[in-house]
């Protein structure tokens, strides 16, 4: 029996409030984290992810209190990420009641942290988040450690290069907004500091490396699709899932339940994360899960 595919509402927390950004910019208030957590948990969410996007140190302490309150009211696992730089940060979050910590920038800057966390807490507690973005610049880079993709490949995979439906059209538009992408060739670059800074690291190589270092799970966000609500980044998700054996969570771009169905049908991903479709009561978690189950996806009900 395969595991149930997981539906994971994500709550971006800024100074104690849930917010939602678009393309890693421009945030809107979406509610109280503890009430939202309980609502999602009651509706049948399989897991929750909290990402602390608070910039200041004082704000950081708020998240620990939130974690504590959340842990006392919900009975499903949850992950906390954002601003975890050192072992002590992770320990504080886990001791406050989180099941997993998610590290991103810190893992890139200090990959040994993954192994240290693993040896203390076990790999099941360690989620490494990858924020990846297509990079169309293939000049002056070391191609030997890059996985090169091309727009042509992607179109060929659709029947005869034709756009089959609205979703593909949206995906096509989303992924080709870059006017400089004349060569049609690109690679997926790992970006850090909330997507602001490139690293020169190939996302697929990085996924393999963090798996070897002891990551228990990968939270994969496509910066290209994040906030667009046009659907998950199938190409990126598929490539990462093929490269590793640890569970992968797809993130970025979910605008409706069809997108979740899509990512589950077209990739081997273990979980789908979404924020905005749940926050503004557009869709409830139970309705989404019912829909996926009716469409043949293994779902916990």
């Amino acid at each position: 029996m395969p595991l149930s595919k997981r539906i994971i509402p994500c709550l971006d927390v800024d100074n104690g409030r849930v917010v939602k950004g678009v393309h890693f910019r421009g945030v809107k208030d979406a509610g109280n984290p503890v009430s939202l957590a309980r609502k999602y948990s009651d509706e049948g969410a399989d897991e929750l992810v909290f990402l602390d996007i608070t910039a200041t140190q004082e704000g950081r302490d708020i998240i620990k209190n939130i974690v504590r309150s959340v842990a006392s009211v919900i009975d499903i696992p949850f992950t906390v990420g954002g601003g975890i730089k050192r072992l002590e940060d992770a320990r504080a979050i886990l001791l406050s009641g989180a099941d997993k910590v998610s590290i991103n920038t810190a893992a890139v800057k200090n990959p040994e942290l993954i192994g240290q966390l693993m040896s203390i807490f076990g790999k099941q507690c360690i989620v490494v988040a990858i924020d990846a973005k297509r990079n169309y610049n293939l000049q002056n880079i070391d191609r030997t450690n890059k996985n090169i993709f091309s727009t042509a490949d992607r179109q060929n995979k659709n029947v005869g290069g034709k756009i089959r439906n609205r979703n593909d059209k949206q995906e096509h538009q989303t992924l080709n907004h870059n006017k400089d992408s004349n060569t049609g060739k690109y690679w997926f670059e790992v970006r850090v500091y909330g997507g602001k800074e490139g690293t020169g690291i190939d996302a697929i190589q990085w996924a393999k490396k963090i798996e070897a270092l002891g990551a228990g799970e990968i939270l994969l966000t496509s910066i290209d699709t994040d906030g667009t609500e046009f659907g998950y980044d199938i190409e990126l998700t598929k490539s990462i899932c093929k490269a590793v054996r640890v569970p992968v969570i797809a993130s970025g771009g979910c605008g409706n339940p069809k997108h979740m169905l899509d990512v589950f049908k077209r990739t081997n991903v273990d979980a789908a994360l979404a924020a905005s479709i749940f926050h503004y009561d557009k869709f409830s978690v139970d309705k989404v899960k019912e829909y996926l189950r009716a469409n043949g996806i293994q779902i916990r009900v």
Partner: peptide
Amino acid sequence: GAGNLFSLKAALER
């Protein structure tokens, strides 16, 4: 001495 007992304690209390 290995960490997160908080959720378990909360669950028993709940």
